[in-house]
Design a protein around this nucleic acid. Structure first.
Lengths: 126, 126
DNA sequence: ATAGAGTAGTATCAAATTGTGACCAACCCT
DNA sequence: AGGGTTGGTCACAATTTGATACTACTCTAT
C-alpha cells in the first residue's frame, strides 16, 4: 500500500461547502480551539478562562465566547450574585467536537520537534 | 457512564504549551486547513489551488504556502518551463496531519444543521 | 475610613493582519 | 500585434485584533 492509497473519512463529495466553511472559520480562528480545550473538564468562569488562555484579551474572550454560544457549542450560565459569576460549559454538541479537536492537539504535541527542525532547516537556506 | 467521564487522548499533561501553540496557530488560521484539504489527493499547481479555494487572495495563498513549506508540511516543486509551473504537495508529515484535519471537516459537515439551527435560535432571542 | 482587589464585562483608539488591484517577464495562439 | 497564461511581488486600503481605561458593586486589609 502506498501513501497515496490511504483513505480518509470524507464529507460527502459534492456537499455544498459554504456551510462547512462557516463552521470551520469559527473553529479554526485564533482562540476558539484554546477555549475548547480549557472547557474540556467542566464549567469554567470568565476570568479563570482568561488566566488559563495565555495572551487572550478580555475583548476577544468575550467575542469568541459569544460566537461559540451562538453556535450552540458552549452554554453560558449567569449567577446574579455579587460579585457576578458566569460559568461557561461545553454543550453536548460541543463535547462531540472535543474528540477531533483533541486529536489535533495531540498531533501538534507529538510533531513539534519535527516541525521545529523543519523550520530551522528552512531558515538556514533562507 | 456520564458524559463527564469520557476520556480523550491528551498531550502529556505538563508539556510546555508554547511550541504546541506555535504549531496550532499555523494550522488554525484562516486558510491553512483549506490548502490542506485541497492537497489531499496529490500535487496541485498554484493557480489551481487559487481557483479551488474560494475567496483566497493570491497574496494570502503565497504567504500561507510559504509558511506551510517552512513547517515541512508541504513541498514546493518549481518547473522552469514557460509559462512557469509550481507544484505543491503534502509531505509525509503533512499527510499524517490529514487524518485529524479530515476528522474536523467531517464533524463540521455532519453538524452543520445543528449549528445552523442553534444560530437561528440564538438570533431570535437576540 | 479608605485603599486595593476581584467580578464580568464595554468603549475607544492604536496596531497588526488581510484583501485589492496593479504590475512584471516570458512565452503561446490567432 | 493583441490577448491570454504562468507564479509571483508591491503599495495601499479595509478589516480584525490588541491595549488601555472605565463601569458598579462588594469584600478584605490597613
Amino acid at each position: 500500500m502506498t501513501l497515496g492509497d490511504i483513505e480518509f473519512p470524507t464529507p460527502s463529495e459534492d456537499a455544498d461547502c459554504r456551510p462547512v466553511r462557516e463552521i470551520l472559520d469559527r473553529i479554526a480562528d485564533k482562540w476558539s480551539l484554546y477555549i475548547f480545550v480549557a472547557l474540556k473538564d467542566g464549567p469554567v468562569r470568565f476570568n479563570a478562562l482568561r488566566r488559563q488562555i495565555d495572551g487572550i484579551s478580555q475583548r476577544m474572550l468575550t467575542i469568541t465566547l459569544r460566537q461559540l454560544e451562538r453556535d450552540g457549542l458552549i452554554s453560558r450560565t449567569h449567577f446574579p450574585t455579587i460579585p457576578p459569576r458566569v460559568d461557561y460549559e461545553l454543550t453536548a454538541v460541543g463535547r462531540s467536537l472535543l474528540a477531533p479537536v483533541m486529536a489535533l492537539m495531540t498531533w501538534a504535541d507529538s510533531n513539534r520537534d519535527v516541525i521545529e527542525q523543519a523550520r530551522w532547516q528552512y531558515d538556514q537556506t533562507r
